[in-house]
């Protein structure tokens, strides 16, 4: 059982997290500036129709699976970590809080606004106005940038919370 949770679980948690944060950085480093350039020469629809929706599906589901697998690894220690009940849980507690805020940002702000921007799901038949899209675009952009910013300390505390790294950073 320990092997499943701590071995397989951690492996899948990290793999899932790589997919999630990899796509987050792809959006911020590649797609946003790429769309700006594509908008100038009229090629943006190729990205918004075929690339962005696929990337967003992997993005939101990997965010969920990363969070669930992280919660599974912490198991009954999850409340203690989130409530900082023991010094040993301080680093992973910070990492878990940052990951939780980022996960809520994905499902509460980025995904609902991206659906409006890209005319997905309920907006496919009923697109919102251009004014509403502009508001959604700015909200999704800032939420995505906040997540990019938070990913830096989140990764540090995830790495610094385990094994020899914890002893190195928090002796």
């Amino acid at each position: 059982m320990d092997f499943l949770i701590y071995g397989l679980g951690r492996w899948l948690h990290i793999g899932s997290g790589v997919l999630w944060i990899g796509l987050l950085w792809y959006f911020n480093l590649v797609q946003v500036p790429g769309l700006k350039a594509a908008g100038a020469d009229g090629t943006a629809p190729g990205i918004t129709k075929h690339i962005a929706p696929r990337a967003l599906e992997f993005f939101r589901w990997s965010a969920l699976s990363t969070w669930l697998l992280g919660a599974m690894i912490l198991g009954d220690k999850l409340p203690a970590a989130l409530l900082f009940q023991d010094k040993a849980y301080y680093p992973i507690g910070i990492g878990a809080w940052l990951g939780t805020i980022m996960f809520l940002n994905v499902w509460g702000l980025i995904w609902p606004n991206q659906k409006k921007i890209l005319n997905l799901y309920q907006y496919a038949a009923n697109p919102v106005s251009d004014a509403e899209k502009n508001v959604a675009r700015r909200t999704a952009f800032l939420a995505s940038r906040v997540n990019s910013m938070l990913s830096i300390p989140m990764l540090f505390f995830m790495v610094a919370s385990g094994g020899i790294f914890r002893r190195a950073f928090f002796p």
Binding site: N28, L29, K87, Y90, P91, I94, L142, R145, V146, S148, M149, L150, S151, I152, P153, F156, F157, A160, F169, F170
Partner: peptide
């Protein structure tokens, strides 16, 4: 004042500063 999150470098610098602040808080309390 411009929002630092509008640029990639502003975002990275904010992330590094936040890491430093959180690390020092946890290190102090640890």
């Amino acid at each position: 004042m411009k929002n630092p999150l509008d640029s990639i470098w502003g975002t990275v610098i904010c992330g590094l500063l936040l890491t430093s602040v959180l690390y020092n808080i946890v290190h102090y309390l640890y």
